[in-house]
Design a protein around this nucleic acid. Structure first.
Lengths: 360, 360
DNA sequence: CATCACGGTGAGAGCGCTCTCACCCTAATC
DNA sequence: GATTAGGGTGAGAGCGCTCTCACCGTGATG
């Protein structure tokens, strides 16, 4: 058991002394050992081992200006967030990928606009190399705070606040909300449905808006009477889905299909349909979005839905950020990049996939 | 708009120069300004403002040996954890208290023993001042890894691994599991119940063991026939509670009360009792543990349970850690400390409270 | 008037590391 | 044998900050 020096942790100096080399050479070995002859590499390695040397992070950061930490900004507008399986999966993906890049995850939990100052100070303080944030609500002031801090940031979900796509290009990772919605509705069309309604998500979230667009795309393609479609407003919760479904049945008793902007609302819709004696999918076909697996599978009937790879999106957020930071960790293999040639790291749109179950 | 110097961030040197003072004085002002005369304080403050100066964290850490960050180690033996409302609440409490102490939360997500090395390296690398961990399973190797890193650590939940209480005193925060269980069972006794069964949690978790002890305590007190009690094994999941309940009904058809070691299992038990035609609480009274509010309230009938202040425990973990770290932030006010006199920061046991609803 | 005490200030050392640059040694070339 | 090339190594500067300590001026004291 090579007990380290009593008390203080050994410095690179100590390692160098023990190995009989200069601090510079010891440093080289510790950082990979490029350009150092074998015997010296081994001597230094042994000294490191024996002394139990661990590099001082602060000293290293001071000179390299890199601290190997990434902030994950979690705003909690509603009270869910953490227990939301969506976030859990995304954070898991982020955590895994960050680990692969040897970077740490600093969690910035924002509970309200009162925290903005603290966040801005922290981000501006150079504690982290970059940040990951989620574009939740467009009317939120947080994006502005983040932008002002001038820390390289990648967003989860397409940001929708004023001037986003226009002036400053904000890299983000999102799934193909519009395409996924289009596919969902096309599927309903292919089933011969002609009165297809939509339960939309909150209007201040781009994902909800994009899904509405996809719904409209498909309706136009199908030339199913056209018109603005039949849309009821929800807010991504089960109850709102139920309410919206009830409203739709009121407005259009003859509807034969519903595309809900997420699985939670779809499950609420299913409940109402069941209560009103409509058979799914015979009378009304239902498609959701997200494929929250345990939920979608346990619906009655199991929910046909649009799957997005949430954990993968988390990982992509990290990769994108690392690219922005000029990290050369070429993971090669997968090339999901949006812009193949461009040097400036653009955003990434991940594909979605329709998962057919019993509801449509 | 006082635009900061182009490119690089201003250093203390720059602030000092602009304010016409020495670096030392500028530093004093930045750190609270004790012992600096008013006019100078103002001059420096203005310079800070104008230059948009933000202290370089790495440089500061390098000399002070404090980095204002705490690791929160989350091991994920099962696949839940994050979406577990228990953890969410505890992490929320931790986050809030950490913010109050101006400390950052570094999330260390452990997915398996393969991560131990990484964790050890990180903890040993002095990136954080301290750590918070949760004692999940006693057979887990993680506690040993943490102990070896010699980073001040506070545990959530009484650690139960070999040599814990004995050799090294590990500070922890836990609720009064035994007392709470005792109170729950006493309540059942006071209701005139004589055949009281227990659905226990996993045997490798101290909380489960302590609750069993509390159950036995109360039975002994009541001298209700004595004996080892009627215990069925569960694992804190709803299904296990249901299975345990079925088993209990088999073994003791005449039981008239059940104390489940958590609310999840209690809800499973309620389901089985309902299925078997036993009325709650008339035929069988049921008490749970945790008071997971939405769940306990929405049970049928609403669950009588033992409440613990989970978020508060998270905050206490941070306070305890700060005390270990010698942080002088005397929040005064509340004095939940276990050991009033002792200088060595002991552990904290938070009180529990029986919440009466309809099930008992 | 000389001395002391003391709060306020600045000079300078160093925290532990990386990185540039000069140096040295060996081997190839003229 | 003298020269050049080039890889390996060490000396030393410096990242931005804190903190000790010496110093200076002021007001109280002998």
């Amino acid at each position: 058991m090579p007990e380290p020096t009593p008390g203080a942790r050994p410095t690179l100096e100590a390692v160098a002394a023990r190995a009989g080399v200069s601090r510079a050479t010891a440093s080289r070995v510790v950082n990979g050992g490029a350009g150092v002859r074998r015997p010296l590499v081994e001597k230094v390695s042994r000294a490191v081992e024996e002394l139990g040397y661990v590099p001082n992070h602060a000293a290293r950061t001071l000179v390299t200006r890199r601290n190997g930490a990434i902030a994950v900004i979690i705003a909690e507008p509603e009270f869910r967030v953490f227990s939301d399986p969506f976030f859990e999966q995304q954070v898991r993906g982020i955590s895994r990928e960050l680990t692969a890049h040897d970077a740490q995850l600093v969690l910035l939990w924002v509970e309200g606009s009162g925290d903005y100052d603290r966040i801005a100070r922290y981000l501006g303080g150079g504690h982290v190399d970059g940040a990951l944030a989620f574009s939740l609500h467009n009317d939120d002031g947080l994006p502005a705070v983040i932008a002002r801090a001038k820390v390289p940031t990648v967003f989860g979900g397409r940001p929708g606040w004023p001037g986003a796509g226009a002036g400053q290009q904000v890299p983000y990772v999102d799934c193909d909300n519009r395409g996924g919605a289009r596919e969902a509705v096309r599927h309903l069309v292919s089933l011969g449905r002609t009165r297809i309604a939509h339960i939309a998500g909150p209007r201040d979230q781009t994902s909800a808006l994009d899904r509405i667009d996809g719904y409209r795309d498909a309706l136009l393609d199908a030339a199913t009477g056209g018109g603005p479609g039949l849309i009821a407003q929800g807010d991504f919760t089960v109850d709102s889905g139920a309410r919206a479904m009830a409203e739709l049945l009121e407005r259009a008793p003859d509807l034969d299909a519903v595309f809900a902007a997420n699985d939670l609302m779809a499950s609420g819709a299913l409940r109402v349909l069941r209560e009103r004696g409509r058979r799914v999918p015979q009378d009304v076909a239902v498609v959701g979005f997200d494929d929250m697996t345990p939920l979608a599978e346990s619906c009655d009937p199991p929910l046909t839905t649009v799957r997005q790879d949430i954990e993968g999106m988390g990982r992509l957020m990290v990769r994108l950020l690392m690219r922005v930071l000029g990290d050369g960790t070429g993971t090669g293999a997968d090339e999901n990049a949006d812009e193949p040639g461009a040097g400036a790291p653009g955003s990434v749109i991940t594909p979605t996939r329709l998962v057919r179950r019993a509801s449509a």
